[in-house]
């Protein structure tokens, strides 16, 4: 945990997560034609080794969609579906009976990238209106593999300057709780300063 932070810093970032995720949930609901439930965002400084635990462990198979975000508050967005959830999602997207998908081919990979794109785009749109900052998502890329391997590239960017990473995390659920995904907004080095400054919060 960053010792200089008060509850207010965490509350502000939770609000950032809430506002972004609310809009993203609406977009996902429209895309899937399903009701989407959203958990209260979780804001935490985590040691690198504990990030994968959030996803069920470093060896858990997942589909991760990565987007770099260009901005005054440069960030990375990572949307992670545990593999079985990614299959369910593809079944819904392609109107197949639930449980039919058991692989992610090129078409499936593009579809998941597009889901990542839609989630990130809607999240960032509301983040822009909330903060007045500009956020431009870059082209998404997908990796389907062990959670640790999908994450370490994102973490390596922070490794040069820190041993912990700040995650603003939201969990989305559809079809009751059968489909869930994790949405991480990871602000880069100076991004937090920019976000707090934009919202008038002291940050040293």
């Amino acid at each position: 945990m960053n010792p200089k932070w008060s509850d207010m810093h965490y509350d502000v970032l939770k609000e950032v997560g809430n506002i972004g995720a609310g809009n993203a949930a609406t977009a996902l609901a429209a895309l899937l034609n399903q009701q989407i439930k959203m958990q209260v965002p979780n804001v935490a400084w985590l040691p690198f080794d504990e990030v994968a635990d959030r996803l069920g462990g470093a060896e858990e198979p997942v589909a991760g969609i990565l987007l770099n975000v260009e901005s005054d508050a440069p960030s990375t967005i990572l949307v992670v579906f545990p593999l079985q959830q990614a299959y369910f999602l593809l079944d819904i997207l392609f109107s197949r009976p639930l449980g039919q998908s058991d692989t992610i081919d090129e078409v499936g990979a593009s579809a998941l990238e597009e889901v990542g794109n839609i989630l990130a785009g809607s999240y960032l749109t509301s983040l822009s209106s909330f903060t007045g900052l500009t956020f431009v998502p870059m082209v998404p890329a997908i990796a389907v593999d062990m959670a640790g391997a999908v994450l370490d590239y994102v973490l390596a960017e922070f490794g040069q300057i820190a041993d912990q990473v700040l995650l603003i995390e939201t969990e989305f659920q559809a079809l009751g709780e059968d489909i869930y995904s994790y949405f991480f907004l990871v602000p880069k080095a100076d991004a937090l300063k920019a976000i707090f400054a934009a919202l008038g919060v002291d940050y040293t």
Partner: peptide
């Protein structure tokens, strides 16, 4: 000795 989930690491 085991280490799991190496990507770019």
């Amino acid at each position: 000795l085991v280490t799991i989930g190496l990507g770019s690491c």
